[in-house]
Nucleic acid binder design. Structure first.
Length: 430
RNA sequence: GGCGCCAUCGUCUAACGGUUAGGACGCAAGAUUCUCAUUCUUGUAAUCGGGGUUCGAUUCCCCGUGGCGCUACCA
């Protein structure tokens, strides 16, 4: 029987959690959970110059937000004794030497071919004659990435190394170290890189690359998860929307793409809107709260407003812009009141007729069904076109070219405010 | 420069040698008695080039081209 699957996500806390890192973490998580294995989080914090604890928090917060819970965590900064012990194993075999205060690993005297057997890419051959001796310990006394990474993967019994393709070229050096330690070599899987629109490596981008940027912009974790999962992997059944537990069930490294994948925001937006629209109103309100804290007004009306725009926002951060006019008097040009197929005269007629019937309407009848009925009746009684009435009433209430329908707005705003706004519109028109 | 990886619509991708090369995003048009959004329908658009292998290549091999990565006492 094979040993239990153990994978690791090994970020260095020199920056906030990057979307590429999140994708790597996700694939590790999916592979581990699919196999009933263990997902290890290992901070590779040996670069004391660039490490910051805020970045550790960014990484753990980001993983938690996405629901990628880890089973163990480790810090390389706390494992100096381990590296010293492993270094001694190599030194006692005469495989190392010191130079300029650093410790180096001697490459094989005779050049040889090192084969990386990659799950995604197949067998990749490298010749050791193209490498330089490997630095194991810096003169500061801390281990290098190449050394600490391999030692930890051995020491933590990592069975599968799933990481970005940018590490493929380092892998033959790592294999040489595994061999020197007479340690079992894990399976490797090098993931395609995430790319900018211009197909350059995404980590070099200047815009939003941190997971937290997207969280703050109002993206949902389930949308981000779905998006990242399908950057380099595809569901065998062609499903576009899969929750995390479904991803776990269906994931396999065999279906991972070899070519780099462009991070296309339009697709993320689409996924986000999809998940946003399907939230219950109560959930939606909770999600929206932090984004609309600055808008004050009647709570019930706020609830109405959010219900009306729920299928219109792609991100939570768009919400305040979409519901602002519910909370404050809209500002717009008078000519916006006139529909393109109408005239100022007809528009005025429509608004005045509407005002008259609304003022006569009992408070108890102030609901969408009744309002729609009454407006329809008025329309035919006055011999008006829909654009002579529905459009200007809607603009009078919202001040926007695009918005929910007039009866929805009337119900949400209530009688007093609606009538006030329609009067304002009539005055604007003359 | 050296070493390595990669190559299907604009983008994410499907098609374990035989399909009218499929889906999704985007875009365009239409329907849903005003707009926007939603929903539905339709349309748009791809196998990088050249050689092989094969009865037959998106698929296998070689060359070219292009993109990317690595080549740090960064990870």
């Amino acid at each position: 029987m094979e040993g239990k699957v153990r994978v690791r996500f090994a970020p260095s806390p020199t920056g906030p959690l990057h979307v590429g890192g999140a994708r790597t973490a996700l694939f590790n998580y999916l592979y581990a959970k699919h196999a009933g294995g263990v997902f290890v989080l290992r901070f590779e914090d040996t670069d004391t110059e660039r490490n910051e604890s805020v970045f550790e928090e960014s990484i753990t917060d980001g993983l938690k937000w996405l629901g990628l819970n880890w089973d163990e965590d480790h810090y390389q900064s706390k494992r100096a004794d381990v590296y010293r012990r492993y270094l001694e194993k190599l030194t006692s075999q005469g495989l190392t030497y010191e130079q300029d205060g650093g410790v180096y690993f001697k490459l094989p005297a005779e050049p040889r071919v090192v084969v990386v057997d990659d799950i995604i890419r197949g067998k990749v051959e490298f010749n050791s004659k193209n490498f330089d001796d490997i630095v194991l310990m810096k003169k500061t006394g801390t281990p290098t990435f190449n050394f600490a990474n391999v030692v930890d993967d051995i020491d933590m019994s990592i069975t599968h190394v799933i990481r970005g393709e940018d590490h493929l070229s380092n892998t033959p050096k790592h294999i040489l170290l595994y061999e020197a330690f007479a340690a079992p070599i894990p399976r490797f899987a090098h993931l395609p890189l995430l790319l900018n629109l211009d197909r350059s490596k995404m980590s070099k981008r200047t815009g939003d690359t941190a997971v937290d940027d997207y969280r703050r912009a109002g993206y949902l974790p389930e949308a981000m998860l779905n998006f990242l999962a399908q950057l380099g992997w595809s569901d065998p059944d062609g499903q576009d929307f899969l929750p995390l537990d479904e991803l776990v069930k269906k994931f396999s490294l065999e279906r991972v793409q070899k070519a780099g994948a462009v991070f296309d925001l339009q697709r993320l937006n689409h996924l986000n809107q999809h998940y946003l629209m399907r939230k219950s109103l109560d959930e939606y309100i909770e999600l929206a709260k932090p984004f609309i804290a600055h808008l004050s007004g009647d709570e019930l009306m706020g609830r109405f407003a959010l219900a009306l725009i729920q299928d219109r926002a792609q991100t939570l951060s768009e919400i305040p812009g979409l519901i602002e006019y519910f909370f404050k008097t809209p500002d717009y040009e008078a000519n916006l009141l006139v529909f393109k197929k109408s005239s100022p005269e007809q528009t005025g007629k429509g608004l005045n007729a509407t005002l008259t019937v609304l003022e006569a309407l009992e408070d108890t009848d102030w609901n969408q069904v009744k309002l729609q009925q009454i407006l329809d009746e008025t329309l035919s009684a006055e011999g008006l076109q829909p654009g002579d009435m529905f459009w200007p009433v809607r603009v009078a209430l919202s001040g926007e070219e695009g918005s929910p329908s007039p009866v929805e707005l009337l119900e949400a705003l209530g009688k007093t405010e609606s009538i006030s706004r329609i009067k304002t519109a009539i005055n604007k028109l003359v």
